[in-house]
Design a protein around this nucleic acid. Structure first.
Lengths: 181, 181
DNA sequence: ATTCATGCAAAGTGTTTGCAGTATC
DNA sequence: GATACTGCAAACACTTTGCATGAAT
């Protein structure tokens, strides 16, 4: 499923090295501007977020970061993530059911949300890029950003059974009783 | 699509009577189809949801419904809401930070999400209605529904101070006080 | 040296689950 | 009368907070 362009060296430490550098550079700059210390934890969380395209939860990131910074606490990951969002380096994305998810802040992109497995995939669209938002000024709203949210079935789930497994409804059986009252 | 002519009586008890009836009718039908009992709680929760356009949380609805069905439990409200979503009568909408929000299922509409106060306003757009989604098939995705999510500042918040009050960042050099909670 | 971040533990939210009793069909 | 729902309490998952210590500038 996840398929990396294999143009770079295949050494794990190289894959995505440039994006990581860029991100860390932006972090350093942002922190300096605000007078915030650049801590190992902040660097590590950001570094863990960069290569991911699966919108990890705070806990996912905690787990990942724990490998680089063994003693890090969950609390810190939460706090760092909030800071990164505040600094504009990351985004907290909506994810109905379960907790918050995060992603590195990139250019405009949209979300495909699978109703079955709950995964979220990104997609971009030059066509949509040109989309002119309706006169939201009429609503008195000051637009900061926007994106498209698409729900449906991801490729994987499309292949699998049609029956949704998470519904708590009983059997939608043919119990079509005749009307009584 | 959902356009109410103001042709009805202005008595409070009448306002929105038709939509409520419609919704209850759909509930009865949906339940009958699935062989589910139409309980007072299900009717009450749906009835409480119909007139609202503020995307109430489960707890908001619990409070509202408690007035009509005094003994109802929070648990039941949660369960009923899930059922309503499963039945296609309501939607659970993403709401980063805080819990899930719900809305009556209507035609396509989009969300204005205020970054300051967290409120969510709906808007519709015939122009967007005609929007052709990019070839998502390329992603193997089967589209069920889609909507636009716009973030920014709502009319109310635009009027107020520019400083965001929820940031946990220290002073961005110049401390601009005057913000409470 | 100052200021802010970190880690820990504990407290908070929001939501789900097991079970006995009960309403609806 | 059978089935599924309701209410209660407890369990759960996720996130935040208070405080003492430790690190970055």
């Amino acid at each position: 499923m996840v398929k990396y362009a294999n143009a770079m060296s295949s050494r794990a430490s190289h894959r995505g090295a440039r994006p990581v550098e860029n991100a860390l550079g932006r972090l350093a700059r942002a922190c300096r501007e605000r007078g915030l210390p650049v801590t190992v934890q902040r660097r590590a969380v950001l570094e863990a977020l960069v290569p991911r395209d699966d919108h990890p939860s705070a806990d996912d990131l905690f787990e990942a970061v724990s490998r680089t910074v063994p003693g890090i606490s969950r609390t810190t990951v939460y706090r760092v993530l909030e800071t990164l969002v505040d600094l504009g380096l990351a985004s907290r994305i909506s994810h109905p059911g379960g907790g918050a998810r995060f992603e590195l802040r990139r250019g405009r992109h949209h979300h495909l949300h699978c109703a079955r497995c709950g995964c979220v995939k990104d997609f971009t669209s030059p066509a949509l890029e040109a989309l002119e938002l309706p006169r939201l000024a009429a609503h008195g709203f000051e637009v900061d950003d926007w994106s498209l949210h698409v729900t449906g079935l991801c490729a994987d789930c499309r292949g699998r059974s049609r029956r949704t497994s998470k519904s708590r409804l009983p059997n939608p059986s043919r119990s079509e009783k005749g009307e009584k009252r």
